[in-house]
Amino acid sequence: MSGPVPLTTDHPGQVASATPPAPGRSRRLSDRWLAVAFISPALLLLLAMSVFPLLWALYLSFTDYSATRGGSAHFVWFENYTAILTSAQVHLRALTTLIYVVGAVALQTVLGFAIAYLISRRTHGRGLLTTLFLVPMMLSQVVVGLFWKFMLDAQFGVINSMLGSLGLGQVEWLTRQQTALISLIVVDTWQWTPFIMLIALAGLTAVPKYLYEAASIDRASEWFRFRTITLPLVWPLLLIAVLFRAIEAFRLFDLVYILTSGGPGVSTETLSFHVYKVAFLGFNTGTASAYGILMVLIVIVLTQLYLRYLNKLKED
């Protein structure tokens, strides 16, 4: 940081500046130093709180360690993994999770897109409508879960009360095998339809107006316009939303915990709820870790898909 600086020779007025500017070479060096100094604290926190725990889980997944039994961990290599992958119990949970993820995300996508489309066709009150529709999404899953539990309550629930005044029978929403998973899907749909709506609306309002004008001059039918202009232009953004929701739905735990605790029987036990049971009720830490690692692998694949796609979208 000394000596005359070529940069300032063009600006004689700045020579008198109190801080002498750094020469080019050391500037680049200090840039690198700055980058390291600014990035590494954040990365260190992530390494300590995300990467290290996962590596530990990876290690535990090859052992028979139990958090309560204590004692030392013995290597069992892939026993945990084979046990999980061949377990009929786990297959059942995987199926439940699949039904839940596909059902909830599909419902949300259709509903969310429909609402966004309806809102995008309005000229007045859009801001207010959007804000109102977004409320469920901002609530904590705990609040959502608790509240729906009350509304779906067989005895005091308002849903059954309304069904009753319509002359329909009472339904034990959360305590019957057939309806529990459906209830879960409905609640998740209620909470996350606004998410899809929000993103779909962003896509819909970004469609250039002149395309519609051109189409309407050509007397193109509404359906034709929707199919050839709206959908292709909104679809990429919508897919982002769908993938994002799929990852979130796959990770879901809070709602299951509060609404049904996996019951009745195991009818609403998703993979993440099952991991919790293995780890914190069964205390088979080793098995739970292997289970967790397998789930992390699935999430990583989904996330990669999501990020790749996102990247492609940004480059276009």
């Binding site: 889980a57 990770r251 993440s272 289970y291 967790g292």
Partner: peptide, 8 residues
Amino acid sequence: PPVVVVIP
């Protein structure tokens, strides 16, 4: 998934 991370 938080449920997985929370174990380690």
